[in-house]
Design a binder for these strands. Structure first.
Length: 427
DNA sequence: TCTGGGGTCCTAGGACCC
DNA sequence: TCTGGGGTCCTAGGACCC
């Protein structure tokens, strides 16, 4: 019954956006900061001195996110500056999402300080506005933090709406408001349109969201690819993306990068940095119980020119040593020798540890092979165990003629890299 | 005195296979 | 002898967002 009414009534989506989150958290911890121009920024001595977030009081002086600290101080000499305390922000963020889940389990966190709620079926809690007010009050009372909330029939409009009144705003954006409210805005006001896209759109005479909503699709497609089509749909208020509470669990990559306090040309020194990055990535991978099937590095030079290089691996990795090792190899192969400003390591193509374990377990293969010698051919292995296991074992590198030899000899070395198995084998 | 660090998604070309 | 068109994988880079 409810389902049948669904398309008729549409969905009710909330977008909750914390106002200047890091700065607000610091103010909640230290009330003496309230009402003052406050900025969260890194250490300028380490060349990390950019504004990460700032209070509304600071914004009044023209201080903005990503502005270098010295520039912000010039605009606002009395600016109070704090270093970011990410652990604190993560803790508070978790508490904030717990508050949201008191209203519905359909909560999708999108970043540390914003998330979507689908309250279509939560009408017993009140009207959408009443629910939004209640959420806003509870976050303010329990955590001493301000947020803005957008109410709309889909994610895009809810996100747009939450942006319209800050701080502590609640904004409804209905389909029928689009033409009057959304269309007059410049294209770069739109979520998904940055500087480059706005520039491109300008070349074909599209300046406002309204222009975009009525633009020629073929023209958009040739200019921006599939993204052009999507932007036009959004400009018309169309967005079918569901609110997915699981989305946050499905990460695609884990990385760590750092700007060096000064430009470095010494290889040993750069290797040390890679080792420390490898350790961070490894710890985070293990905490999330995943392995990386592809490793990537980032090198930014003195002139800010940045290159990325990646390598798909025969065996998924997660240990600090493996990350450091592979990263160093990639680095040596691609480093120009010029002074380096930033280094980064990222793991891609993440696989669940347990899953990888299963795929890498070759005991069952050995048993099967005894029963059925023909299994030793590459194609049979592939068919029987899937592509992944073969590549994990390094078999893809050998000619199929050599499969038999390799298949019998790779086992030991291969299994040795897994402590659990090598123990059993060696004892 | 310039411009952090964490991500996602898309594109495009070459290799390789059928 | 000359030749196609589709599909997937891998890699590099760009755009965008918070």
């Amino acid at each position: 019954m409810k389902r049948e009414m669904y398309p008729k009534n549409g969905r009710v989506i909330l977008h909750v956006d914390m106002n200047s989150f890091y700065a607000s958290v610091e103010m909640a911890y230290d009330a003496s900061l309230k009402g003052k121009p406050l900025a969260i920024a890194g250490n300028p001595e380490e060349r990390r001195g950019i504004i990460v977030t700032c209070s509304y009081e600071a914004r009044r002086f023209g201080v903005k996110t990503t502005m270098p600290l010295w520039e912000a101080k010039k605009l606002c000499p009395q600016l109070i500056v704090k270093k970011p305390n990410f652990n604190r922000y993560r803790t508070v963020s978790m508490a904030m999402f717990e508050v949201l889940r008191q209203f519905t389990p359909l909560v999708e966190p999108v970043s540390i300080d914003e998330g979507y709620l689908d309250i279509t079926d939560s009408f017993e809690l009140g009207t959408p506005i009443e629910i939004a007010k209640s959420i806003q009050n509870r976050i303010l009372e329990q955590l001493d933090l301000p947020c803005s909330i957008g109410i709309a029939p889909n994610k895009f409009l809810a996100k747009t709406a939450s942006d319209m009144k800050k701080p502590l705003g609640i904004t409804i954006l209905r389909k029928r408001d689009i033409q009057a409210v959304l269309w007059p805005l410049a294209t770069n006001e739109m979520h998904g349109v940055g500087v480059k896209t706005a520039e491109k759109l300008q070349t074909i005479g599209i300046l406002t969201i309204g222009d975009l909503a009525n633009a020629n699709e073929l023209q958009l497609k040739s200019l921006l690819g599939i993204n052009g089509i999507r932007l036009k749909e959004r400009a018309n208020g169309k967005d079918d993306r569901p609110v997915d509470p699981e989305a946050i669990e499905e990460f695609k990559s884990i990385g760590n990068s750092t700007t060096l306090p000064r430009d470095v040309t010494n290889q040993q020194e750069l290797f040390h940095v890679l080792e420390s990055l490898a350790e961070t990535v490894s710890i985070r991978m293990k905490r999330k119980n995943v392995l990386a099937a592809t490793i990537g590095i980032t090198i930014r030079y003195k002139d800010r020119k940045t290159i990325t290089r990646s390598k798909r691996l025969a065996n998924p990795i997660s240990s600090k040593e493996e990350f450091a090792d592979k990263a160093k190899q990639l680095f040596l192969k691609n480093w120009s020798g010029d002074p380096v400003r930033l280094l980064g390591i990222t793991g891609f193509d993440l696989v669940e540890h347990d899953h990888a374990y299963k795929q890498l377990d070759l005991f069952s293969y050995e048993k099967e092979a005894q029963k059925e010698p023909l299994l030793h051919t590459l194609s049979n292995l592939r068919e029987k165990y899937g592509k992944h296991i073969i590549e994990s074992a390094g078999l893809h590198q050998v000619d199929s003629k050599d499969d038999v030899g390799t298949a019998t000899s790779f086992n030991k070395d291969f299994l040795r890299s897994f402590p659990h198995h090598s123990e059993e084998k060696e004892k």
